[in-house]
Design a protein around this nucleic acid. Sequence first.
RNA 1: GUGAGUGUAGCUCAGUCGGCAGAGCACCAGGUUGUGGCCCUGGGGGUCGUGGGUUCAAGUCCCAUCACUCACCCCA
Length: 419
Amino acid sequence: MSRVNKIKGFFDLFPPESTSYTFMEDKAREIFARYAYLELRTPILEHTELFARSIGQETDVVQKEMYTFPDRRNRSLTMRPEATAGVIRAYIDSPAASSGNVSRFFTLGPMFRYERPQKGRTRQFHQVNAEMLGEDSPYADAEILSMLWGYLQSLGLKKLTLEINSLGCPACRPGFDARLKTFLGDMDRDVFCEDCQRRAGSNPLRVLDCKAPGCRAVAAGAPRIVDNLCPECKEHFDRVLAILESFGIFYELNPFLVRGLDYYQRTTFEVISNDIGSQSAVAGGGRYDGLVKDLGGPGVPGIGFACGMERLALLLQGIQDRPMDFYMAVLHEEAMDKAMLMVSRLRSKGYRGEMSFQVRSVKSHLRQANKKNVKTCLLLGLDEMYKNQVQVKDMSTGVQRAVSQDDAEQALGLVFQPR
RNA sequence: GUGAGUGUAGCUCAGUCGGCAGAGCACCAGGUUGUGGCCCUGGGGGUCGUGGGUUCAAGUCCCAUCACUCACCCCA
């Protein structure tokens, strides 16, 4: 029979990769709990309109990267390409929105974007997300950044760069966009790459982020948003940076940092790694003060981040499951029943391990146990059955002794005693 | 959506000028009675991605197709 392929850009997670994912999730729950963020789980499928309105009709994500299809009654549904929109929708649906209190949530789970896969980019990918709603203090920005940074540290990651920028607000951003458009419009078109000749009119900020040498030269002399913030935005941004410095969190000001989702304003940031290929952003986020209202909720501010787990996994080395406590080796068919009972009792005592249901030679069993990297190997054959005993062998020292079958758990306890 | 590259054993890959399908690792067994790791010996494993074409002969050349990888773009 022919096989069925898995869907392009989708993948199965076997150990040890799956262990890395469990590790990232466990750490997220542990660290975020310290900041009083609570876990929120929202649906994977939402009405398409939610993303069109939040992420922005003109963005690449909405225009060409969404998994969108009609349901059986012809309503347009979309598999979430990011988490924030769903979180806000859920928040607006909840009592929290009308309470007037600050809400802190985190979410873990799969996201979907229809893109050509490459290193660090798959069609189903996983994000760790955190969002704070109802607070516009610069301390909120600093808390989110501090939590993100602390999380990445807890994973043991080094050599990461935090890049930060401010995009301004509805008071100062439109004026800057106009100024930038004028500046770019005065340039000779030929200095831009093909893409930027188009962008100069439609999305001028993007030109500043282009990697083509010609565009970079132009960008170097272009007006910068950080120099054109309104007094309120400038004050906010300066405070954020000052708090970060007091925390000892190093950042790089990147005036060209532009994010692909339309809802960001004021503080935006990315965390970059140079060790994972061309898709180098392992985390990103920012402030989205107008978004809750745009989605029909109260006019409360918000800020959040997303971490890409596939990209973090590229940086995680040697995350392994704890070794098993025992491997039960049966040397004769007549010992099988007894072995099964002993294993069952050990498990009920909290020990972890497996049993081979094959009767094999001692040598063969020990080779298995050795490969599986278990702490002990239990051997049960005819000799032991006659004496009501079981052999317990410590696989790291090679020390072995026979104990009463009723004492196996005590024996394991002794073997595991630290010297 | 665009471009480049790669498909041969479970894995990583050799395979010359078109001439019998290979290595390392992994797996299984043995190396004196029921004792692992190191070492030695032996063994099982293949639709050479798939379909067509050229040829006495195709893993190798040609065409098509599928899958995967990397990059552009964009983003986590």
